[in-house]
Design a binder for these strands. Structure first.
Lengths: 138, 138
DNA sequence: CTGACCTATGCAACGGAAGTGCATTTATTG
DNA sequence: CAATAAATGCACTTCCGTTGCATAGGTCAG
């Protein structure tokens, strides 16, 4: 519990009760989480608070945002050494068409692509879709 | 003009006046196009018609849909041999942070990724973001 | 040619999700 | 404790995708 407070403090986020709960929730889930997911889990809290909490987390490098192609923004906790901004640090994401969950494959970086003359890449997003390990094992 | 009619017929799409115009519009633009873009260009036509036209085009393999991370769906004409459904045929897309346009890099396929045990990829989406050739040349 | 029929188009409305402005509560600091 | 800043909650807006239903327009059989 105290570790979460410390973690938030280290990232320049004031550890309020709400924020600690949200962090804990994200830590317990091992899949990317949408604002609506969190809203369901914390029915009493206001949507805006949750929204702004996520945005604060994102800005301070606590979570990174994921666009998995479903049309809804999702978030996942950054790994200890996660440098989300740098191209070479971008891992890829896997979206399961069966259970509809999205997971970070932090070990799998996006390979370097040779672009045509004149194109300069600053960022990349790679999402693979298919059947995840949990669903294919059934 | 007649080629467009033929092209649509070949794909099982009845070539109405509206559809020919939309096809022509897409052909003239070399960048991915959103429903709103088309709506602007055809102010008299109804949003729904344009929407359904795009969906029809997509289903019949005339266009493919692109998710470039901006949150709005975009579409681009399929190349002659484009097999959008097959994993090995997936090209990548480049979104320019300067001019905000998204282009197909049809020559650049998404590299094969070795996934962890249990994961089966059926589809993939790779979007690179940065500065495009037109903007970097300035 | 004409009526029946199917398809395309148009209009209205809905729903989900992101986002903003402002008031209020809670925490921090002098 | 008072003054100030930050966090939370409420109301509302906007944007986009989508659907239901009515109408217009093209197609085909008789």
């Amino acid at each position: 519990m105290k570790e979460i407070e410390k973690k938030l403090n280290d990232n320049g986020v004031r550890p309020t009760a709400m924020r600690i709960l949200i962090y804990k929730y994200l830590a317990e889930k091992d899949v990317a989480t949408s604002l609506t997911d969190i809203e369901m889990a914390f029915a009493k809290a206001d949507r805006t608070t949750l929204f702004r909490t996520l945005k604060t987390f994102e800005k301070q490098g606590v979570v990174h945002q994921i666009d998995d192609g479903t049309g809804v923004q999702k978030y996942a906790l950054c790994e200890p050494g996660c440098n989300c901004e740098l191209e070479q640090d971008l891992h890829l994401h896997f979206h399961c068409n069966n259970c509809d969950e999205t997971v970070c494959l932090t070990e799998h970086k996006i390979p370097h692509i040779n672009l045509p003359e004149g194109f300069v890449a600053e960022d990349a997003n790679l999402v693979l879709k298919g059947i995840c390990d949990k669903c294919s094992g059934q």
